[in-house]
Design a protein around this nucleic acid. Structure first.
Lengths: 329, 329
DNA sequence: TATTAGCACTCTGGTATTGACATTGCTAAT
DNA sequence: ATTAGCAATGTCAATACCAGAGTGCTAATA
């Protein structure tokens, strides 16, 4: 357990370092702690022994370690009240009744990214939770129909399908009817499997080119289940930070943003707001991620904010708190 | 007009510089041109006077100027035959009849980005050319319908619409019927205007909350016309190049990729393959863009490849040529 | 006349060197 | 328990230096 003064010291160092990005030395803190630099040095040394502080080189100031940030997040930081201006921008966004929720969220992310200088993103729920609610087809021309898949969680996606010459639109519609009759409620990622056993045998009897038609739907559904909704804002914001000023690291992170596996790596399982510092997240060791799951009438998703480990945790957490509350009502 | 040797010299310098990214000096070229470095220096000097070469400092080797690249592209480069391996990858992609064209294009971009080390993108035709073909609505629940807009060029988009309590799904459908009767064929960006004069007065008579309903569609269509389809691959590829090794430049370019205006800036008007070097493109002075418009049964779009000015123009042009041909048949 | 050898000159890029500065750890005094 | 004082250690920026790669120009050559 840390003493009162050590708590205060750690907090100051974290907050100072977050602001300036340069190691903080003992002299600078004399005023704040009402003691000499020597005393502070002693305290710093013990804080370093506990593993909360680090030095970048033998005679540098101190920098918080990951454990240090962890301790800060768990015990030291207090919820910061949001400034009226930022809150106002967001508030008006969520109060706009004409906006569909997902659009409101997307737009709020732009604001969040701007005021936090982080990358923020929203992920739709993954396909294993999404169940089929309805399939619709709209004929486009003789060789093409548009299939629309709607899930119970409100996830929507469309896809053009090429229909071979031998197949009529009516036949396509019959298959869709069948799917709607038999497969509603099935988790999206099980659909392509179920197609084979539930649908394929049945269409064989009354659809001419059943084999080709089955293939079309099979392919379509395997793609549906792999994609998942996501929106990102402030993608290049991390370039602002000194810690990411070399191209290889930047590229590494930006590529991870584009990666398909990103969604699974970031998706939140917990309902409260959680902070994952450095190695605690399995996205990238050099960033911190703050995220939460939201649920609003059945529809669920993740909101995440990605930034440097040297991040204004207080601000971001309370901001996310605020957004979550607004979404869920 | 340049002499034969000057042509050869310029070509060698361009190709060497493209490969190594460092200024090329006179000594290195003696073998290739069968003459002494002094002769080459003389030729270089005249090439510099014409404006085709530049020096990075007084005693450095030469680097092609933008005019130099221009001359190279216009007069010096020859179409390069593609290597069998790359061609094969792409060929099989386009030969896959189950793939919808747009999917095939998207996937081909991944390959293109990989073999060119550039960023490649495809843009759907802009909304001024797209005309409304059909609107469909699918009811989701009491307060939400999904509107699907299809254009004559094959562009599809869907959008959730919030319906206020007083409005029934039937009323929404009536409006859609009306739109389909009266507005089909209208360019997408004129629709919201036409809504006001063609539709608004008519629904007033037989739809209860016509004002609110009108608003919903008005908003929806103004968003439709602003968005346009686009797909990008190799977004971070430019980070490979020395010329983009400072964060501010990188950020500048990456932000331009995310910018809404990007689509208009890059969209091609011409049907052949064109090269825009540096300031010739109005996207960014430090890159070159090679692009072409494609048209395939009415549907049209742009394919563009963005890279450093020091780009393998021969390779990229012939690659784009190849892709365009495959798309258009 | 076109080419070339030779040479002085210029600029880069890497490596040392230096000094100012910040900061620490430790010791001894308070 | 705190502090003053000091040597030690490392960074950072400036400077100097040198080798290397090029160039331009002049004068000789084919």
């Amino acid at each position: 357990m840390l003493t009162e003064r050590q708590n205060k010291l750690l907090r100051i160092i974290v907050e100072e370092y977050v602001k300036t990005a340069s190691p903080v030395g003992s002299k600078a803190l004399c005023d704040e702690l009402n003691c000499s630099s020597a005393t502070i040095r002693n305290e710093m040394a013990t804080l370093e022994n506990v593993g909360f502080l680090e030095k970048t080189h033998t005679s540098s100031g101190r920098v918080p370690s990951e454990d240090g940030y962890r301790y800060y997040v768990n015990n030291l930081m207090k919820p910061k009240e949001m400034t009226g201006e930022d809150m106002l921008k967001l508030q008006t966004l969520f109060d706009n009744r004409e906006l569909v929720l997902s659009d409101a969220i997307n737009k709020s992310l732009e604001i969040v990214s701007e005021i936090t200088n982080c990358t923020s993103l929203v992920l739709g729920s993954s396909s294993s939770i999404n169940r089929l609610k309805q399939v619709e087809v709209v004929p486009f021309d003789n060789n093409k129909v548009i299939a629309i898949v709607i899930t119970d969680k409100g996830h929507i996606e469309h896809k053009e399908l090429n229909i071979e010459d031998g197949i009529s639109v009516d036949e396509v519609k019959k298959v869709v009817e069948l799917i709607n009759k038999l497969l509603v409620g099935t988790p999206l990622d099980e659909i392509s499997a179920k197609l084979e056993f539930e649908i394929k045998p049945r269409i064989a009897s009354y659809v001419k080119s059943h084999e080709a038609l089955y293939q079309v739907f099979y392919n379509a559904f395997s793609e549906f289940s792999n994609k998942s909704h996501m929106h990102m804002a402030g993608r290049t914001n991390l370039l602002n930070y000194k810690e990411f000023d070399n191209t290889s690291k930047i590229r590494e992170i930006l590529d991870k943003f584009d990666d398909d596996k990103m969604v699974q790596k970031i998706e939140a399982e917990e309902n409260d707001i959680n902070v994952y510092i450095g190695h605690e997240n399995n996205f990238d060791d050099d960033v911190s991620i703050i995220k939460t799951k939201y649920v609003v009438n059945g529809e669920e998703g993740t909101i995440a904010i990605v930034g440097p480990k040297r991040m204004d945790y207080e601000k971001v957490v309370s901001l996310l708190e605020f957004i979550k509350q607004n979404i869920e009502r």
